[in-house]
Design a protein around this nucleic acid. Structure first.
Length: 277
DNA sequence: GAAGAAACCTGCACGC
DNA sequence: TGCGTGCAGGTTTCTT
């Protein structure tokens, strides 16, 4: 399940593999992957375009093509890109193929068909659904303590769904929310406006550090995530709570518990992370 | 307007 | 062995 570190890992891989190449044509095998556009128009618009650069904002990949055209791609749960020699037969879950000019095909694979691609003018990328209201990147310079204090104090939403909402902070998903809340000793059901300034400073530092560290380790491989080279990340070996339900908390030894918060499986330590009301 | 729930999807684990 | 059920989860859309 790609979160920010996984998407950045994919971006770096694609940058090495496909930037500078031309698209000859595309094949779409699941129409709904292309949001708001007929697949034939998608193919027509992309044919002959050069892939000039690949950017990222939060969990969104942004392909920039020649003639000021861009494509916003969200991998959602299990989306993945990989390249293969031209003529390679697409697999069952290869939903889109980009035929490139140097004997290479770029495949988009998505087992659950949750991913979406949107073609748009390059100057309208930030108007695409999801990007229009996205919060700051979790970095020292973008995610300031002042911003967090101001953003959190207006909401009684529980921390788990609050942090998952990309409007507040870009890039966090289920795994890293559980990890950073555990590190910060905050209960996932605590309302956002009850986090003290001292706790907020710790939470901020943990979010920034955790995502940077996970990116260094090429992300977390829990289900099917691999980068554009088909390589798995290694950060799953660093997880302290996610996937460790029933095992002892690494801080206090209490067995970790799993609950549902806002429809999301949530693992936490009932001793270290005390709920506030 | 805010918050919660359902829907989108498929593979897998589990129970019978 | 085979079938039915529940679960996993990011985002959008619908409902309260």
């Amino acid at each position: 399940m790609p979160e920010l570190p996984e998407v950045e890992t994919v971006r770096r891989g694609l940058e090495r593999l496909v930037v500078g190449k031309d698209i000859i044509s595309t094949e779409v095998r699941w129409d709904r992957i292309i949001s708001g556009m007929d697949p034939e128009l998608f193919n027509k618009a992309l044919s002959g375009k050069k892939i000039e650069s690949i950017g990222r904002r939060g969990k969104y990949l942004i392909f920039n093509f020649s003639d000021d055209l861009s494509m916003v791609s969200h991998l959602r749960m299990e989306g993945a890109y990989y390249t293969a020699p031209a003529g390679t037969e697409p697999g069952k879950h290869d939903l889109v193929t980009f035929h490139l000019n140097d004997g290479v095909d770029l495949f988009y694979r998505d087992t659950r068909k949750f991913g979406r691609m949107v073609l748009t003018d390059s100057d309208k990328v930030m108007q695409v659904n999801g990007l229009a209201s996205i919060g700051p990147e979790p970095t020292e310079s973008s995610l300031t303590l002042e911003y967090m204090l101001d953003e959190f104090k207006h909401s009684r939403m529980r921390l788990k769904p609050f942090l998952l909402d990309q409007k507040h902070i870009a890039g966090l998903g289920n795994i890293y929310v559980d990890e950073t809340l555990w590190q910060s000793k905050l209960h996932p059901k605590t309302p956002a406006n009850l986090v003290t300034p001292e706790e907020m400073a710790i939470l901020r530092e943990n979010i920034i550090t955790e995502l940077a560290y996970a990116t260094e380790h090429h992300g977390t491989t829990v289900h099917s995530f691999t980068n554009a080279f088909g390589e798995a990340g290694s950060f799953q070996n660093e997880l302290k709570v996610y996937g460790r339900v029933g095992q002892p908390c690494l801080r206090c030894g209490t067995p970790l518990e799993k609950i549902k918060v806002a429809q999301r499986g949530t693992t936490f330590c009932p001793h270290c992370q005390v709920e506030k009301h």
